[in-house]
Computed example of a mutant assay.
Amino acid sequence: MNDQTTRYSTGILPAQMIRQAIAAGELASDDAALPIDEAQVQPASLDLRLGRTAHRIRASFLPGRETTVESKIERLEMHRLDLTGGAVLEQGCVYVVPLLERLALKKRMFATANPKSSTGRLDVFVRILTDNGAEFDQIAEGYRGRLYAEITPRTFSIRVRTGSRLAQLRLRRGSPVSSDDELRRLHQTVGLVDAASGEPVIKNGLAFSVDLAGGEDGFVGYKARHHCPVIDVDRPAHYEKWDFWEPVRADRNRSMILTPDDFYILASREAVSIPVNYAAEMLAYDTLVGEFRVHYAGFFDPGFGLASLGASGTRAVLEVRSHEVPFLLEDGQIVGRLVFERLMETPDKLYGQGIGSHYQRQGLQLGKQFRP
């Protein structure tokens, strides 16, 4: 078990090592006028920024081992949008945007990407592409080149601009995924979930379940309305939530039926805490737990929900979408799992500790664009 002063040769890079990678040129801006800013550096990740142009394309794609992203854009492009003054990305359309960041990774250095929490809570599907890439969101060892975001607004049309941050990047050396035995020891010493949740289910990660108990009125979440106004992703606490959402209440059996292709915001029963020297990722939809996707945004930073930072555990918000058939969801049903990874050293900034984190004490909380 590591402590807050131990350093490792493998693991996820913390904030101070991300800055070192920037200084060494492993992370750089593709635009000299818009260098990487300290505000992009999170405890265990780097926020990625949209560049100056969005390409509307006919279909999603993967470049493949022998192809660049630009060559696929040339083949599939319908038109392009100038983002420097802001532009609307329409619901149901697919766009590819060159990002301002580029990479020059060293040997044994890998990276993974994920949408930011506020992006997922708007039902905006964002995946990162690289030249010669055969997978989304996976940046190969030693990759040198540009990064691109594929963006598909699923429910709401959104307004973005050059510099908007929809995705985040984690850098790692080696593959330091924690074992189940290590997670059990972590829970005993730190408490990965609150005592009210009971003993955690640890199997290939930390299982989490959905809360459909609700309060006196049975309120358990939100369902997105259709045909809504455009949402500007860079306007926090601006929109009245009931213009875009309707309340969801569980039935007397503490259950609900997901309607195919509707989008829901629900919450986990477990209040989660992430130790300061670990980071976690919520794994994607698993066919073993049902015909629905349980999240878009999956990164949990060190310090999230930690009692020593004033949170006493924080519930995970679940971005849920059913596929093709109605699906019965019941209170306490396991819907996913968190996989923990050790950091190379404890970061010099932590989630919620004066860095503008929006969800440290969240309950059932919508994206930052909506007024509380």
Rank of each mutant, 00 (worst) to 15 (best):
M1C: 10
D3N: 11
L13G: 01
Q20R: 14
D30E: 11
I36Y: 05
Q40I: 05
R49D: 02
H55W: 14
R56G: 02
G64T: 10
R65N: 04
T67L: 09
E70C: 05
I73S: 09
I73L: 10
E77W: 06
H79Y: 11
G92T: 09
L99K: 05
E101I: 12
R108S: 15
A113H: 01
S118T: 04
G120L: 01
E135W: 13
F136Q: 08
I139E: 01
G145N: 02
I151Q: 03
P153Q: 01
S164M: 01
A167V: 00
R173P: 00
S178A: 15
H187M: 15
Q188T: 14
V193N: 00
D194C: 10
L206R: 05
V210S: 07
D217A: 12
P229L: 08
Y239M: 13
D243R: 09
D251G: 12
D251V: 13
I257Y: 06
D261R: 05
L266W: 10
A267V: 13
S268Q: 03
M282P: 01
Y285N: 15
V289H: 13
G298V: 00
F300C: 07
D301A: 11
P302F: 08
G305Q: 07
G305H: 05
L309C: 08
T314R: 11
E319T: 07
E319N: 04
I334F: 10
R337H: 06
R337L: 02
L343M: 11
M344N: 01
T346W: 03
L350I: 07
Y351R: 01
Y351V: 03
S357V: 00
Y359K: 07
K368F: 15
Q369R: 06
F370H: 09
